[in-house]
Design a protein around this nucleic acid. Structure first.
Lengths: 111, 111
DNA sequence: TGGCCGTATGGCAAATTTACCAACAATCCT
DNA sequence: AGGATTGTTGGTAAATTTGCCATACGGCCA
């Protein structure tokens, strides 16, 4: 019985990790930041990150698969938007980590 | 001038991505969850995740380098603890993404 | 209909990540 | 000092991720 619970727990963390991985790339973070302003078409996002459009498309597919974004086709274009706005709360904490790290570096210099 | 700003922005996202990557692994998420209860020694974390201790040590080194955790040596043991508690806020949003995704799946079935 | 435009997908090479084993370092205990 | 315990580091093979090219697909317009 314990094995089953253990397994379940491991699966839970794996599922969480998948979502976090979908955030863990500079281009994808850039796109998410941009999408927080509202939906954008693929070509706009390509201009933003400056990669090949096939690369951008794959980043978006990955985020969609993770549940971070959803898409909507309109004519020849595909628009993407954020699915769960709370994602944006991440960034303030990330900044806090960076500041905390910076202060640590400072204190090492001061010694 | 624009080039410099662009560069800076890219660096910023890269720095953020590094921190998020440090979270993006099932074992590391498991450890962070555990560390939210208080500091733990490496051997406790190894028992938790069930990997070789060298593997666990490397996961911890990576999280330390990212600024997520800090360590403290006491006798033969090394204790790790969370550096920035707000990390725990991540999880509620991650759950929200998972629920949102689940509801989407449901609605597809219903059709 | 034929051709263009905006995206997606298959394929592949390069880069990165991960996990284990071995070897080493530091601390404790006898 | 010698041995046991706890962690870290180097090395390496396997797995995963990334990015581009070429190609395919679907909608629009002449």
């Amino acid at each position: 019985m314990y094995g089953a619970i253990e397994m379940k727990s491991r699966e839970k963390y794996k599922a969480r990790a998948k979502i976090i991985k979908a955030l863990a790339h500079p281009s994808r973070l850039m796109m998410i930041d941009s999408l927080s302003e509202g939906e954008k078409c693929v070509c706009e996002l390509r201009d933003l990150v400056g990669s090949d459009i096939s690369t951008v498309s794959k980043h978006l597919a990955l985020m969609k698969e993770a549940g971070l974004v959803e898409d909507r086709k309109a004519g020849q274009q595909v628009y993407y938007k954020l699915r769960v706005p709370c994602i944006m709360n991440f960034f303030s904490c990330i900044e806090a980590v960076m500041e905390s790290k910076a202060r640590e570096q400072m204190s090492l210099v001061d010694k």
